[in-house]
Every structure is written in C-alpha cells, then in structure tokens.
C-alpha cells in the first residue's frame, strides 16, 4: 500500500521534497559510495528464484543483507537478526533456512528461493491465496517467512495434522494473529490441494 513517492499534496503549501525512487522489483538501486571498508568484497554468483545473479559482497555478509540490499529482494524481512523469528526464512536447495544466519559465501552453490519466487508471475500459489482468504496475514511482516515455512511443511506433510502444523511453523514468530488463522490458511491450502489432486507447490 505504501507509496514512497510523495502523493499529490492537496494542500497548496505542502512541503516540496526531492522525489524518491520507488523500490519496485527490477529497478536498479543506487548504492552508497564505496568507502575504505568496501575492500574485501568479492564477486560471486547466486542462483535466486531461478535466475543467476552476479553480486559483489563480503564473503561473510549475511545472505539476508545481500538479498535485500544488493538484489532488491526486500520481501525477505529481518525481525531479530539471531535466528529466532523466522522472518528472514528462504529456501536453500529446498531446505528452509534463516538467511540472517547464513554467510553469503555458503549460499553460492545453492538454489535459493525467496518469497518473490513463490508466485508464478501474477498467479498466486494456493497457500498465498489462503493466507489472504483465511486471515493468515495481518501486518504482513512475518508473512513471507511464514508462507515459506508453510510450503516446507506441506511438502513434508501434504495433509498435515494439527500437531504437525504447530511443529512445522514453530520456528516462525507472529505477534498479530495468535496463529489460529495461519493454521486455517495451511489447512485450507492442504484441503484444496487434495481436492485438485496433482496440484503442486514449489
């Protein structure tokens, strides 16, 4: 919803500010000028959402920061920076990881999937749809990580029990929903998958 561009102010004497560039996906991002500390960055190639992308980064930079700052993939969020909240979850070779705990060098040989790689163009995956219809997303900050965790869960247990849902999502914290509507979102997605036998999740 947020539009970083100043809206057309309807007050005549509204403040005039410099236009701000929107971080739409695919736009190139201007970076801070490199300083003395930038030495030590190395070129590397990452496979993200099916694309091969070249970046320069410190080998020990957090995968989270490289995704967000170098690749404009800001759907991956930072909630705690210590692997507790799961907001930064991504897939590495099909395994769910906290990208705040992964040095980028360790990710260069992996196939990485972020929330931006879940929908097929404009077509949402069923689990994304059910997070909207069942109320699984409120403020939305945990949602990208939660959806990836739900995908991992459904891959392991296509028809999960309540206990499996709880365990499968227990590494991702949500402060808004009390989790009930997230459980509903997973259950309904599983039911739909059963109804459309053969439908696949990434």
């Amino acid at each position: 919803m947020a539009d970083p561009k100043p809206a057309n102010a309807n007050k005549a004497a509204g403040p005039k500010t410099k236009a701000v560039k929107a971080a739409t996906s695919g736009s190139s991002k201007s970076k801070a000028k490199p300083s003395a500390t930038a030495t030590g960055k190395i070129p590397m190639t990452l496979s993200v959402n099916g694309k091969s992308l070249k970046v320069e980064a410190f080998p020990m930079a957090r995968l989270l920061d490289v995704l967000r700052e170098s690749l404009d993939l800001t759907g991956t969020k930072e909630g705690c920076g210590e692997g507790e909240c799961g907001a930064c979850s991504v897939f590495m070779d099909g395994r769910l990881v906290n990208s705040c705990l992964v040095p980028v060098l360790q990710a260069t040989t992996a196939k990485i999937v972020t929330i931006e790689g879940v929908a097929d163009g404009n077509k949402l995956q069923p689990i994304q749809e059910t997070f909207i219809t069942e109320g699984g997303a409120q403020c939305g900050i945990c949602t990208p990580g939660m959806i990836l965790a739900a995908i991992a869960l459904l891959k392991k247990h296509p028809q999960p029990t309540d206990a499996q849902i709880r365990e499968g999502l227990s590494g991702n914290l949500c402060r808004c929903t009390g989790y009930m509507k997230i459980f509903d979102s997973v259950r309904v997605a599983a039911e739909r998958a059963l109804a459309n036998e053969g439908a696949s999740t990434p």
């Binding site: 970083p4 993939l73 994304q128 997070f131 939305g140 949602t143 990208p144």
Partner: peptide
C-alpha cells in the same frame, strides 16, 4: 502485496 513480498516497509 503482503503475500508476495511486494509490500514496502
């Protein structure tokens, strides 16, 4: 935008 990661915080 909240389920696709497009929402801008």
């Amino acid at each position: 935008p909240k389920v696709t990661g497009a929402a801008l915080y």
